[in-house]
Design a protein around this nucleic acid. Sequence first.
DNA 1: AGCGCCATGTAAACTGTTACATGATTGT
DNA 2: ACAATCATGTAACAGTTTACATGGCGCT
Lengths: 195, 195
Amino acid sequence: MLDFAILGFLRYQPQTGYDLHQAMGSSTGFFWYAQLSQVYTTLKRLEGKGWVTSHIEPQQDRPDRRVYTVTPDGDAALDDWLGTPLTELEPRKELLLLRLFFSGRLDPATTLASLQVLRSLHARQQALYAGPIRDRLAVCFADPDPVARREAICWDATRDFGERFERMYVEWLDDTIARLSHPEEVSGPGIVPGR
Amino acid sequence: MLDFAILGFLRYQPQTGYDLHQAMGSSTGFFWYAQLSQVYTTLKRLEGKGWVTSHIEPQQDRPDRRVYTVTPDGDAALDDWLGTPLTELEPRKELLLLRLFFSGRLDPATTLASLQVLRSLHARQQALYAGPIRDRLAVCFADPDPVARREAICWDATRDFGERFERMYVEWLDDTIARLSHPEEVSGPGIVPGR
DNA sequence: AGCGCCATGTAAACTGTTACATGATTGT
DNA sequence: ACAATCATGTAACAGTTTACATGGCGCT
């Protein structure tokens, strides 16, 4: 999948592995991150497949840059991938849920402390999505070109997902912390009125 | 991480690889799934580490069962893992967001069709969490033992997360579909009143 | 003097998926 | 007759992380 992330970024403009890693770090990195080393090995693999080509740009006082460009084949491959709809839910991996699932026999104070830490992390992330990241994207909507506008909608939709996800996460943490703090109270799902 | 999922399940009772895979399929599978083949190879690795032991239970008319049991070392390793708090947000991989991010130049009808399909998938999943899965867990709250009750809270918290996540997902899809359906309207994040 | 940025990669280890291989029993 | 369930695993591959290795420039 990193293949397509890289193709997508290279379609905006030819770039080096380093550039790509930087670009990801401030955009798709929130939902698709890769180590720098993986970017380099993936670029080499993509070049082998004929989806990208590279050339060296010499520099003084800095290491030379190897700049990658998408080939027509790579372009077609990306369009093909984007055009194929997802027809199944992809499996998720949520480390915290795995821990929590097996934490019932632990001292509740241990679990609660862990959840409190996470709460602050997610709250901070939510604020990032709702504040600076949102502001940075807002300017993209100024472009009158309809394609640029649609692009802005897509970008902001991914940000919006992040914001909602983190808000949901914090609310869930608050409620879970409350449930674990008062285990003597009836807090099962079967007793909630209206069901 | 699968290591700890397996240890967790084996702590409830000694089981075979096949049993573990079944157990995961109806509980942790929603946030930590593994192929059957991976369960077998992981069990072998855990036995090498000395965290589990196995013995054969002969059966007539069925293949013999290799039943695994947690060793004291494995028990300690699981407690250790559960006791170490998470101090960073783990990176997420959200395939749909990656596609959507690069879908701005596509025909909007293609993107919309893809999102519509996903909407029905997530709505169905949400109904599962809110209905049958919730009901199945509700009985666990009947146990008067405080430890069993805390365990039930932890299990149900993971289900609750699933329910909220899917609800959030569907709401986000609805709003994103609406934004992409009317691209001529001003739908940027910078124009919403109150900000 | 030391840290961070720019810029390249390789190698080893680990994790996870897909395909292959076997075979009896039970239900439609 | 065919598919699903029970039950075991191996082998090849793909994807990802972590550690290693290099080196000049600019800032504090």
